[in-house]
């Protein structure tokens, strides 16, 4: 301890008190504060280095956080979509069940595959739809397609994951049918209008009435037997004509059905595509 240290300390303390008093009353002491601040500046800047590095890292982290957030959002969205798809699948399954119950159960002992209409052919002269099942699902050309109410058409073009279905109302299409009531055979051709089929080669004398149900006859080996095709809505016997003019309304909801069934029945539909094209076009 140096000599007179207590007195010196007292002196410094008194000076400090005087300085405090001066600082409170006179602004001149501010220059002293500025001077001290200048001396402090390097230390303060050095103290900020870690925080600026931390800031830099947190900026990096923020970008990463953004990406993570985006990723999370996309994942959530994906989940929602997947959930929807799942719901669709379950609805499809449920619908298929109901459909199987609906369409006369004795007919549907064939294997079926549920499919969805994904597009409609915009060509007004062709009645074709695109479905979301293709060769990967075992779809083949000439395969019969049904909806909940009856025969809808046949597959005319197969891609790996989608297929084109020509509906029975297409003017290029014809299907052998028979009257459910008495077994009279006829051929129902499309007219190009979705709500109308024409029965050709029906003798004038044939026993056919309005309201008769037409079912597929299975002749020709294209369509399986016994599926409802159309209901006769007009019969005209014209004198002097060889054939009666008969029109029928398709049972299948050609313009409304969204969920369709692809039928895998033994012996039906397996026609070489070359022949099919000949017949279809």
């Amino acid at each position: 301890m140096p000599a007179y240290q207590g007195q010196r300390t007292l002196l410094v303390c008194l000076l400090a008190l005087a300085l405090m008093w001066a600082d409170q009353n006179y602004s001149i002491v501010q220059t002293l504060r500025f001077a001290a601040g200048y001396v402090l500046y390097p230390a303060q800047q050095a103290a900020l280095i870690p925080s600026s590095i931390a800031g830099w890292f947190s900026e990096l982290g923020t970008a990463r956080q953004d990406l993570l957030d985006e990723n999370r959002q996309l994942s959530a969205r994906n989940l929602v979509l997947e959930l929807k798809a799942q719901r669709l699948a379950s609805l499809e399954a449920e619908n298929a069940e109901l459909r199987e119950l609906l369409s006369a159960s004795e007919q549907v002992d064939d294997k079926v595959l549920v499919t969805t209409v994904v597009a409609i052919d915009p060509d007004p002269f062709s009645q074709q739809v695109l479905i979301n099942k293709g060769s990967e699902n075992g779809v083949f050309i000439g395969q019969p397609v049904l909806d909940a109410y009856g025969l809808l058409g046949q597959v005319v073009d197969v891609l790996p994951f989608s297929s084109k279905v020509m509906m029975i109302a297409d003017s290029n299409h014809a299907i052998p049918v028979q009257i459910n009531r008495n077994g009279v055979r006829a051929i129902a051709t499309g007219t190009g209008a979705l709500d109308q089929l024409e029965l050709i080669y029906v003798p004038n004398t044939a026993d056919i009435k309005e309201g008769d149900l037409l079912v597929s006859s299975g002749l020709g080996g294209r369509y399986p037997r016994g599926y409802p095709v159309a209901v006769v809505d007009r019969v005209e016997h014209q004198a002097g004509q060889m054939f009666a003019s008969v029109t029928a309304r398709p049972s299948a909801h050609l313009d409304r059905s969204r969920l369709l069934l692809l039928v895998f029945s033994q012996g039906a539909g397996k026609v070489p595509s070359k022949d099919l094209w000949k017949g279809a076009r």
């Binding site: 207590g6 300390t9 410094v12 400090a16 300085l19 405090m20 504060r33 001290a36």
Partner: peptide
């Protein structure tokens, strides 16, 4: 003085406490 500048206290506060502390 530098502590006063650092902590924005009245100039002389820390001089006072430091003097007593060092003593």
């Amino acid at each position: 003085l530098m502590l006063d500048a650092e902590h924005a206290t009245l100039m002389g506060t820390h001089v006072f406490t430091m003097a007593i502390h060092i003593f």
